[in-house]
Design a protein around this nucleic acid. Structure first.
Lengths: 256, 256
DNA sequence: CGATATCTTGAGGAATCTCAATACTAGTGG
DNA sequence: CCACTAGTATTGAGATTCCTCAAGATATCG
């Protein structure tokens, strides 16, 4: 739960884009999909690819927001801290996800790599100029903000009104759905984040997370071959634990 | 906590705009401020003013999102329900606030008037055409979405990691700050919403809300002349209960 | 002024948290 | 190759906060 701040440089190992946007695997899922090949070159011209080691900080809450990012590989977590160290993770960002909303002069949260991650880094000023130039990009960003807002509202419902068991089942299902959307297999989940991360995302302690995962395992709904892997054995049961119906998750998966 | 759905027509008492946008009291605080007088006429042409009685529903989660709104008077609450009736209020919308984000084909939450409220109603399709036509308006909407997103993240921190006492003190301070931003006196707060609404916003029961309000009163930080009015007697004490410093609230008040 | 809603207060219970011990995993060096 | 260490996860026991259920007080409205 405490910050345990890795004293990382905010943006380590910057290097010029090796492989171009045209060959980008997550292009279709990212804001970049709003641009034509020609327009994309303009974006590429202001892009730096950065690699982050696990637990390195991308930026700190309160820092001047000089850059915006797109995650291309790995997972990034985003959190806010209270003065005494209590932490709330407000989101996990997967390949294709845009990182840097809300658009303010200073970051309103800290972003940290969960595992080894790669990001496309855009200077904010120049990115905003491109927004003026390419209305399609701005529209796409508004859509992205809409998606994040809807996800935030779902998370408020979870944090304010769901039981621990429901929160954990909901979390696993949402990971599964996001994997599906990225075209990955949906029943074998990799959990790159620690129990502590999961707890801080769901508003629970690590012990409660662990206990309820064990319960899910004992019920037969999932299997836990190791701490970082979850196999969904019986999705209907998991939906039941989450207090959801299949339509609920399909709705979320579609994004509206 | 249960829906207790008032079987109201979704949009009662529509009537053509009586007084124009030019004379609108909340214009400067709303998305409309992005438009010139001339442009504003275009918006006005697609606007209908609607009046809502207390507890009437503006729209339901799942409904086709035909309209977007701007609150011009009163307060509107927005919530999501679980299958068994548990409710999470994700926001209160005050005069000047834009209602209808995130932009989807169907509303992702229900909106309901807390007290007598007036709204400007825009047909969504036509409003989106104006977004294309007036990039300034779209930019302003992105800014609005950013503000909502940042507020949502603050609320996740509150719901996931703050104690009941901190939640309630934080809530009162945020009401106070919003009143300040609307140019109202900041120490005498009108609470148009019920204890049940407050509980469902803060992830608590009405009893817990009541008990902790009483505690705040006994501590001398606030006075409660009646259930719908709060006087902040000692702001530093209230900040202490909220676990915040003055900078925290100023930052929120400024919006970044 | 009575009827109904809402709010407050009280007592007991339940879910989650805290603190502590044990188990597991991965990496290190002998 | 195997102990050793450090970090992480699991399991257990007890404490605490908040919730549930119930009664009483207050406010609202016809």
């Amino acid at each position: 739960m405490p910050p345990k701040g890795p004293l990382a440089s905010a943006v380590p190992h910057p290097m010029k884009l090796a492989t171009g946007c045209a060959a980008c695997a997550v292009r279709d899922m990212s804001v970049c999909s709003a641009l034509s090949a020609q327009e994309l070159e303009r974006l590429e011209a202001i892009t730096t690819r950065v690699e982050m080691e696990p637990q390195f900080t991308v930026f700190y809450e309160g820092d001047a927001a000089k850059y915006l990012f797109n995650v291309t590989s790995g997972v990034v977590k985003v959190y806010k801290l209270l003065a005494d160290g209590r932490r709330q993770i407000t989101g996990f960002f997967f390949p294709g996800d845009f990182l840097g909303l809300a658009l303010y002069d200073h970051y309103t949260y800290t972003a940290e790599a969960v595992d080894k991650a790669t990001l496309c880094r855009f200077p904010r000023r120049q990115f905003e100029h491109l927004l003026d130039e390419f209305p399609k990009l701005e529209k796409r960003l508004l859509q992205t903000a809409s998606n994040e807002l809807a996800a935030a509202q779902d998370q408020m419902l979870l944090l304010g009104r769901k039981t621990a068991q429901e929160r954990i089942a909901t979390f696993l299902l949402s990971l599964s759905d996001r994997a599906t959307r990225r075209g990955q297999r949906t029943n074998v989940l990799k959990l790159p984040m620690s129990r502590s991360d999961i707890g801080d995302y769901l508003g629970l302690t690590i012990e409660t997370v662990s206990r309820h995962l064990t319960r899910l395992k004992k019920s037969g709904a999932v299997d836990l071959p190791n701490a970082q892997e979850i196999r969904i054995l019986h999705r209907p049961a998991l939906l039941e634990f989450a207090g959801l119906s299949e339509e609920d998750t399909l709705a979320t998966a579609a994004g509206f």
